[in-house]
Amino acid sequence: MFIGVEITDEGRFRLVDKATTISEAEGRANRLKQKLENRNTHLKIYEYCSAELLVENYFHSVFESTKSIADRIRDVTGLHSDGNALADAAFSTTNPLIKINDFITPTDRSEHIGLSNLIKGVFGLIRNSTAHEPKIRFEISEEEALDILTTISYIHKKLDKIV
Rank of each mutant, 00 (worst) to 15 (best):
M1L: 02
M1R: 03
G4Y: 09
G4V: 11
V5H: 09
E6K: 14
T8W: 03
G11F: 07
G11L: 01
R12Q: 00
R14C: 03
R14N: 02
R14Q: 14
V16R: 03
V16A: 02
D17A: 05
D17R: 01
A19T: 08
T21G: 03
T21R: 08
T21I: 04
I22H: 03
S23G: 00
A25F: 02
A25P: 10
E26W: 00
A29H: 01
R31I: 03
L32S: 06
K33L: 14
Q34K: 11
Q34H: 02
K35L: 13
E37W: 11
R39K: 15
N40I: 10
H42F: 08
L43H: 10
L43Y: 09
I45Q: 08
I45V: 06
Y48L: 08
A51N: 14
L53A: 01
L53D: 09
V55L: 09
Y58F: 15
Y58E: 05
Y58T: 11
Y58W: 11
F59N: 05
F59Y: 14
F59C: 07
H60L: 14
H60D: 05
S61V: 01
F63Y: 10
F63N: 08
E64W: 06
E64T: 00
T66L: 05
K67W: 12
S68Y: 00
A70Q: 09
D71W: 15
R72K: 15
R72M: 02
R72L: 12
I73S: 11
I73Y: 11
I73Q: 07
R74M: 07
D75Y: 12
V76T: 13
V76M: 13
T77D: 01
G78M: 00
H80N: 14
S81Y: 12
D82I: 08
G83D: 10
N84A: 06
A85D: 14
A85E: 02
L86S: 07
D88C: 04
A89C: 03
A89F: 04
A90H: 04
F91M: 07
F91V: 11
S92E: 13
T93N: 02
T94H: 08
N95R: 12
P96K: 02
L97C: 04
I98H: 11
I98L: 13
N101I: 04
N101V: 06
N101H: 12
D102I: 02
F103W: 12
I104F: 06
I104Y: 00
P106C: 04
D108L: 07
D108K: 05
R109S: 06
S110D: 13
S110V: 12
H112Y: 11
I113W: 05
G114M: 08
G114Q: 10
L115I: 10
S116D: 09
S116G: 15
S116I: 01
N117V: 02
K120H: 08
G121C: 02
G121I: 01
V122L: 04
F123G: 07
F123L: 00
L125D: 03
L125E: 04
I126Q: 04
I126S: 01
N128D: 06
N128E: 06
S129R: 07
T130E: 07
A131G: 02
A131F: 06
E133K: 10
F138W: 08
E139Q: 05
I140C: 01
E142F: 09
E142S: 12
E142G: 05
E142N: 07
E143K: 10
E144Y: 09
E144Q: 04
A145M: 09
L146R: 11
D147L: 11
I148C: 13
T150P: 02
S153E: 04
S153W: 03
Y154G: 07
I155Q: 00
L159V: 01
D160G: 04
I162T: 03
